[in-house]
Design a protein around this nucleic acid. Structure first.
Lengths: 234, 234
DNA sequence: CATAACAAACAATCTTGCCGGTTTTTGCTG
DNA sequence: CAGCAAAAACCGGCAAGATTGTTTGTTATG
């Protein structure tokens, strides 16, 4: 049976672990390697975390290789040894942030018992949590910058599209109640992601009370979508 | 009667014109002035339009004073005569883009006949149109950059908050059917703006069909919100 | 003549990619 | 198993290019 086939007897744990495996970035597993290899992976992760920190607090435009190296605690020369160019580094950041985002999402799903998982607000809360992480903030910065930076778009768009598709196909396995309706699940995910992303952008401009109301209303909307109370076709 | 009072007999035309007046930027009206003043305003608008173009196509990080001057068709020295520093220029761009955004929105509302205006998709379509303009793209770039750029935030946030509040209080006048429910109107506006902004950010990543579905679903959601089918309180 | 609009050049600061040099780890060989 | 050369990790400095604000100069208006 292929990895895309369904096996109704699998637990949510097994399903989500397998989903994550498909999103895992390459070159970051130090299992069964020598000391140099392990050290290399460790340094690389420190660099990626530093880059995420930098993107989150200073934005893409003000994220410099100098700053990343400082935060990572190594010299700029050492960093350029692992990532020869800024593009190479950013490419790895994209894969890494997407993986982390869905890891947090699936962790949240897994932590719920089945009855709680299908309650109307649970999915939104967990989505909201996975969107409030430094990793997603960094991803959002890149997504935004990619719209106006051709060089960045060249490495961002192919990855983002592929990872988006993979994440959609894999995370639905954690929602048996959506299994029969992939299109509905896709719409719900896109809808929630769009609204919450928009909320994230305006978080400093809008009052907290407005943001809370929008989130609460979104939860009810998604619940109705799942129950079929709002048929999608116009 | 104060400018904030309601006058049920006013036409939508009169109402929206008065709403715009409160949002109009200062120093851009050349009425009854001498030749130098008129020339100055004309050049300043050329600079603002160039800045909007630049922000839209290159993003805030890559928007340089050099590029703006080039697009505006004047020398960099001449531009710095009108806007001594980049901050001064950006501050004017904020006011200008917000004004333009609501001008387009109210123009769209005004163009509808009353029966059409209260149809469920009309509001979303017009909102969507006002969010697809170069002016709003530029505003969004600034809103995003302001989250990670303290210097920009200092000039952006106060303006954005004030203009947001003014726009909300004024544009509701164009919707008699919302007049009794300011909170509901605010929620609908925030909700639609958040979702459509999120859509705008991911426009290059997501397939067009997904974006269309999200928009259609948003329209139905807002319609239900107005009809009270979805009570807001949890 | 004073002021506004406009132009061009300049210094100071940043950022990137590259290059030479040092230390540590690995693997081969006698 | 000792020794040694290759490779990997790491560091500091440099030149080229870009961006901002200032300054000096020119033309047109009041």
């Amino acid at each position: 049976m292929g990895v895309l086939g369904f096996r109704g007897t699998d637990s949510v744990d097994e399903i989500s672990i397998r989903a994550l495996a498909l999103l895992e970035p390459e070159g970051l597993d130090a299992e069964g390697q020598g000391w140099q290899q392990r050290k290399s992976v460790q340094t690389r992760i420190a660099i990626l975390d530093a880059a995420i920190d930098c993107l989150q607090t200073h934005g893409y435009g003000r994220t410099t290789t100098q700053l990343i190296a400082e935060i990572a605690g190594i010299s700029r020369g050492a960093m350029l040894h692992h990532y020869a160019t800024k593009q190479d580094l950013i490419a790895s950041v994209i894969d890494y942030t997407v993986y982390k985002r869905w890891e947090i999402f699936l962790d949240g799903i897994r932590a719920l018992k089945d009855p709680a998982r299908i309650q109307k607000m649970a999915g939104i809360e967990i989505s909201w949590n996975s969107l409030q992480t430094p990793e997603y903030a960094a991803y959002l910065e890149l997504a935004i910058a990619a719209r106006t930076d051709p060089n960045l778009a060249k490495i961002f768009l192919p990855r983002a599209r592929r990872l988006d598709q993979t994440a959609l196909a894999e995370t639905i396995r954690a929602f048996p109640e959506w299994a029969h309706d992939l299109e509905g699940y896709a719409l719900a995910m896109d809808y929630a992601t769009a609204t919450l992303s928009g909320l994230l952008i305006n978080r400093d401009t809008w009052p907290e009370s407005s943001q809370r109301e929008v989130r609460a209303f979104l939860g009810k909307t998604i619940a109705m979508l799942r129950h079929g109370d709002l048929n999608r076709a116009a």
